[in-house]
Amino acid sequence: MTIKEIQDQIIEEFSSFEDWMDKYNYLIELGRDCPIIEEKDKKETNIIKGCQSRVWVSAELIDGKMDIKADSDAVITKGIVTLLLRVFNNQPPQEVYDSELYFIDEIGLSTHLSPTRSNGLVAMVKQIKLYALAFTLKNSAL
């Protein structure tokens, strides 16, 4: 699936939730279930410090596709991180770099990605795009 298709799929999933409670319960579930980053990778260089919650992120290029691992110490943030990884992972770096994230807005979680919300998510997306750019350049150099 393309980045756009995955985003549309998430929007579709969220449209079935009746109220905020369902939505957050789902995010919390996602945050709980998903084993994302290994403890050894939770090192200082991978950390994105927000005022509120912290996010760890690292990325590799496997078979020309993005393989991002991330984590957060807050479960709701982690739920959103999981959604972001679902969108970005297994995609070519160029696509990730060029992508426009609109699903967060559509599912009513935009406050979590506003620049004033210091939960590390905005910085995380930026970091992922930087990884994507670096991988794109590396690819074209080969």
Partner: peptide, 9 residues
């Protein structure tokens, strides 16, 4: 529980 989660809910 992380205080951010408490505050968000």
């Amino acid at each position: 529980v992380h205080p951010f989660d408490v505050g968000t809910l």
